[in-house]
Design a protein around this nucleic acid. Structure first.
Lengths: 223, 223
DNA sequence: ATTCATTTTCAAAAGTTTATAATATAGTAT
DNA sequence: ATACTATATTATAAACTTTTGAAAATGAAT
């Protein structure tokens, strides 16, 4: 089980995240200040969620401090656009950032992405039925044979596959693939991709076993 | 490991650079004034990033001072265009300059270029998959065997390889190879080179593993 | 200087991928 | 059964990449 350290002084946010991440099967540690962070940093932590606006130190210092001690992924929680600009402009090496208010599901997906990249804590091959997804090589095999997916098809499959047994709404998938700030993409575009994905990976595209439709909500993959 | 001295009074910038460059595997020394610089200059330094707007001296004086003591590459960090003009106009002998705000990645690429030119330092072999690039000899090996690349093919490969895991836009690559002031080169020229490079270095040119296309943006090499 | 081979550049054609619109089908509620 | 809504399908347009081939430039060898 992976452990996430949340460094955040706003209790409303940290408590909410705490609950949510525990639900999702993570260990959670909470720090509301730089001081607290120092006390906890030597625990076995796999990822840090770091609020940039702490009371007793600049998020930046906390970031440096953590990275000096441990090489673990850090995701910034930023309050305002100017902060985002700083993060981006300096290219500090944050593994990712997310602007408040954020959707828990979106954060979760970023956490998973960061942990996946970090390597050590995961097997890089997801198996669903007769399909294998090799995350490192970005390759998909069906019955051991290469399936050629376009980059978007692959992304959609990956999002579903890394959130197994969870129904993802169209909006969740859309917002995960077409970056939030990008122009809005036609909702039907997703439907079309799902169709093409099914043509490529399902044995019988007319009764899909891998990507299941959950009417009124979205899609899911069951393992 | 190479050491970079950052001479910069703006903490936001110097701290960010400090972190970023350490991440990239450099030793970093920080000086926020001419005085500090004098104290540090006798350390073993391979390159200097020099802010032109110091509080206690003109950047030019610092520049002259450093170059008298050590013949190491100096890259100017300039705040405004007028400063750029001065740098160019005086032809002071800066190895390069970069205007704030700059992208860390761009700076990194210039640092590498400057250090490479400088010769003595740097690890000279980049490995990607079954490809080895020997920078000193400007040689490329595939499975230990020589691959003959033309000079432009080599340059393109090198730019991508020295910026691994970063998507470089066509424009970035073009402007890096065909000096900015030169006549504009047809955008497709790059595409053609990428194709030929792939023919030479990829195992299967139809599903390239080394040079990856990022649709709508450019190309990248992942390590 | 001329020839020949190689490298570089360009333009057009062919091939892919992505986005959208229009239409058809299937599921749900009344 | 009917109307309504959500999803699936099909077709197509637009954007982007790759491929091809040929012209121009370069450079080495005679």
């Amino acid at each position: 089980m992976e452990t996430i350290l949340i460094v955040e002084d706003d209790k409303t946010i940290s408590m909410g995240l705490d609950y949510f991440l525990r639900q999702e099967g993570y260990n959670v540690l909470l720090a509301d200040s730089f001081g607290e962070t120092k006390k906890l940093i030597n625990k076995n932590i796999d990822l840090v969620l770091l609020d940039l606006g702490l009371p007793d130190a600049s998020g930046f210092d906390v970031f440096k401090y953590i990275k000096e001690i441990k090489d673990i992924p850090i995701i910034f929680l930023t309050a305002v656009d100017t902060e985002v600009n700083i993060v981006l402009g300096l290219d500090m090496g944050a593994d990712d950032y997310i602007t408040k208010p954020f959707k828990a599901r979106e954060l979760l997906s970023r956490i998973k992405k960061a942990l996946r990249k970090d390597g050590k804590n995961n097997n890089n091959i997801i198996k669903i039925d007769n399909i294998e997804i090799d995350i490192k090589q970005a390759k998909v095999l069906k019955n051991g044979k290469d399936v050629m997916l376009t980059s978007l098809e692959y992304k959609i499959l990956l999002i579903l596959a890394t959130n197994p047994n969870v129904v993802l709404t169209r909006e969740q998938i859309l917002s995960d693939i077409w970056d939030v700030n990008e122009c809005f993409v036609n909702d039907n575009t997703l439907t079309v991709y799902i169709k093409r994905l099914r043509e490529k990976i399902e044995d019988d595209k007319d009764s899909p076993k891998i990507i299941q439709t959950v009417r009124g909500i979205g899609y899911k993959i069951e393992i």
